[in-house]
Write a protein that binds this DNA or RNA. Structure first.
Lengths: 207, 207
DNA sequence: GCGAAGTGATTGACTGGTTAGTCAATCACT
DNA sequence: AGTGATTGACTAACCAGTCAATCACTTCGC
């Protein structure tokens, strides 16, 4: 049974293999992104997917479960991307650089994610179940960064600190890039984070 | 007339001078923080403030205006704090350090803010009016940081880049501190950002 | 082959409950 | 007597979830 079970009826994998529940999920993500959680209705979701409202409850039982499933979908997709980075790059520093770049890539994921992440954060702030999912995702990101820093920085404590700081920096730069508050060209954002990575390595690495 | 007019009836200053609208505002912020925008109702707000639902519309016309006023209140309060830092500290580096510390202080503001900021971001993601307010706030923060870095870094372009990076770092560290995803002691968070500030100065400063 | 019975997908009208906003009435104070 | 603050019952709209009915498709006895 899936780690990410979210309703009594099906597991995540079973659901997304089928056509209709996947359409519902994608429609939900689109609606969440463009109108926010507050204005998310089963009517809007079903209309966008050209389905009836009833079918939503057939597959997801409640609206809450559907929204949760959307976050799981988002997180799994991104995790898949980071696994791919781990496979294609064999040098730890190259992997860190690839992970930075990944966050600003223009795949369908980022385009959708751009609008959903803020809803995700807001939801996690008052819903314990959503918060657990968010924390699990960031925890995995952090482990991933730490693993790579360990191969570049001899002191494990320093490697962990470098991972902390890079994770925070990636998040911060992505955030201001998202809201166009800092020069918002992806290239500049990536350059800032590459400089940050170099700076962290220079600080913590003993040659 | 106030820069922050949000309803046809009163200006922000006129409203918050009075007892009742201020109680409504604080009650709104508390409800937003604990139950999220999605579950925010005029009934809950008025009950917490020991008032009727009607009075909310008397002062704020619509719920949207009330929520907007809550964000304005939050932002103004924080801006007030940063002005105070500017007055009490006279050294640019000390001012930057004080601004870092400010974000993790346990004043009533941060306690309330902790729960409202995620709602603010989510709301800004799909509402243009809220987005403008959020951008204006971060723009002011950025100007403030840039002003202080200018006195420490001779090249204006470098000063701006340092401000970009510190702003992003503060946001990122605050975020993970907020969600307990990175070692969440305020002292450690502040120490990370102080180190980041030192590193930025070392990189961009020519002695 | 073929009809019957069964199975799960899908519909959309309907319900019970909730909500933002209205408004006539009352209250407190001048 | 007048003025603004405040109340809370009321309304029109909306929404999540239900359910009986239909549809598409398979299985199986003969």
């Amino acid at each position: 049974m899936s780690e990410h079970q979210f309703s009594g009826r099906f597991t995540f994998e079973e659901l997304t293999k089928e056509e209709t529940p996947l359409r519902i999920l994608q429609s939900t993500m689109h609606e969440m992104g463009s109108n926010g959680l507050t204005n998310l209705t089963t009517k809007n979701i079903s209309q966008r997917a050209n389905l009836s409202t009833g079918i939503i409850h057939h597959y997801f039982d409640t609206k809450d479960n559907l929204v949760y499933a959307a976050y799981v979908y988002l997180v799994k997709d991104l995790h898949q991307c980071s696994l791919e980075v781990g496979r294609t790059e064999n040098d730890p520093k190259k992997r860190l650089l690839a992970m930075i770049r990944m966050n600003f890539s223009a795949t369908h994921i980022s385009q959708e994610a751009r609008n959903i992440w803020p809803q995700f954060w807001a939801h996690a702030a008052y819903d314990a179940r959503i918060e657990r999912l968010l924390r699990a995702y960031y925890s995995r990101c952090h482990s991933n960064l730490t693993y790579n820093f360990r191969q570049l920085i001899s002191d494990p404590q320093n490697a962990k600190m470098a991972a902390n700081m890079l994770l925070a920096s990636i998040h911060g730069v992505w955030f201001f890039h998202r809201f166009n508050a800092i020069p918002s060209e992806p290239e500049q954002a990536i350059a800032m984070l590459v400089a940050q990575l170099e700076s962290l390595l220079a600080t913590y690495q003993e040659h």
